[in-house]
Computed example of a mutant assay.
Amino acid sequence: MITNEKIKATEVQLTGLNGEDLGVVPTAEALAMAKKLKVDLVCTSLMSSPPPCKLMGAGAAKQEAQQARRQEAKENCAPKVKEIRLTPHIEEHDYDTKRSQAERILKSGDAVMLVVRIQGKEGAQAKELLERLIRDLSGEGSKKTGIQLSGKQAAVQLDPLQ
């Protein structure tokens, strides 16, 4: 981001403090106007001629750039997969707690891996429990994979709805 005296163009397309268009102005005049108002002259893009510039409060340009960088980083990072472990013989209150945990995670934008520990012949019960959870969470997320039964656990991953 180029500010004040670092702007080398002879004239700029100037936007005022409140967003009003001030037209094409010589750079020296725009700098004088910025000093008079005690604000910064900020060049928003170098891709056009004359370059568009804004009059912005001191420090506001840096803050705006930081917010843009934070937002971009947030959009670029992949969603995390958070695991919730259950057992096939879960009581109703515990089930509700785990369901609300999964809802909260899905609403925050992360994926949920629901894992049910299996002992002996509990595979059918684990599958029923996962199917019930998928039905109950269908408003917040959709399943990425089918229910996978493997050895001592059954698992399914739910991704947040976009």
Score class of each variant (00 low, 15 high):
residue 1 M to T: 03
residue 6 K to V: 14
residue 7 I to N: 03
residue 8 K to Y: 13
residue 8 K to I: 08
residue 9 A to C: 05
residue 10 T to L: 10
residue 11 E to M: 03
residue 11 E to Y: 04
residue 11 E to S: 12
residue 15 T to Q: 05
residue 17 L to M: 07
residue 17 L to I: 00
residue 18 N to Y: 08
residue 21 D to K: 01
residue 27 T to Q: 09
residue 28 A to K: 14
residue 28 A to M: 03
residue 28 A to I: 04
residue 29 E to W: 00
residue 31 L to M: 09
residue 32 A to F: 03
residue 33 M to T: 14
residue 35 K to S: 08
residue 36 K to N: 08
residue 39 V to Q: 05
residue 40 D to W: 05
residue 42 V to E: 13
residue 42 V to Q: 12
residue 42 V to G: 11
residue 44 T to F: 02
residue 46 L to W: 09
residue 48 S to I: 05
residue 48 S to D: 04
residue 51 P to Y: 12
residue 52 P to T: 08
residue 54 K to D: 11
residue 54 K to W: 09
residue 55 L to H: 12
residue 56 M to T: 03
residue 58 A to W: 12
residue 59 G to P: 09
residue 61 A to W: 11
residue 61 A to C: 03
residue 64 E to I: 01
residue 65 A to L: 09
residue 66 Q to M: 08
residue 67 Q to G: 07
residue 70 R to G: 02
residue 70 R to C: 02
residue 70 R to A: 06
residue 72 E to T: 11
residue 72 E to K: 15
residue 77 C to Y: 15
residue 78 A to C: 12
residue 79 P to F: 05
residue 80 K to F: 02
residue 80 K to C: 01
residue 85 R to N: 13
residue 86 L to N: 07
residue 91 E to R: 14
residue 91 E to Q: 15
residue 92 E to N: 14
residue 92 E to Y: 15
residue 94 D to T: 15
residue 96 D to M: 14
residue 97 T to H: 10
residue 98 K to H: 15
residue 98 K to P: 06
residue 100 S to D: 13
residue 102 A to P: 10
residue 103 E to K: 12
residue 103 E to S: 13
residue 104 R to E: 11
residue 105 I to V: 12
residue 106 L to I: 00
residue 108 S to D: 13
residue 109 G to H: 02
residue 109 G to P: 10
residue 111 A to T: 01
residue 112 V to L: 03
residue 112 V to K: 01
residue 112 V to F: 01
residue 113 M to R: 12
residue 116 V to R: 06
residue 117 R to A: 12
residue 117 R to G: 04
residue 121 K to G: 08
residue 123 G to H: 09
residue 123 G to Q: 14
residue 124 A to V: 14
residue 125 Q to Y: 10
residue 127 K to R: 09
residue 127 K to W: 01
residue 133 L to K: 04
residue 133 L to P: 02
residue 133 L to F: 11
residue 134 I to W: 11
residue 135 R to T: 08
residue 137 L to M: 01
residue 137 L to T: 06
residue 140 E to R: 01
residue 142 S to A: 05
residue 144 K to Q: 10
residue 144 K to Y: 05
residue 144 K to F: 07
residue 147 I to H: 11
residue 149 L to A: 06
residue 150 S to M: 06
residue 152 K to Q: 13
residue 154 A to H: 04
residue 156 V to A: 14
residue 156 V to T: 07
residue 156 V to R: 06
residue 157 Q to E: 14
residue 159 D to M: 05
residue 159 D to N: 10
residue 159 D to P: 00
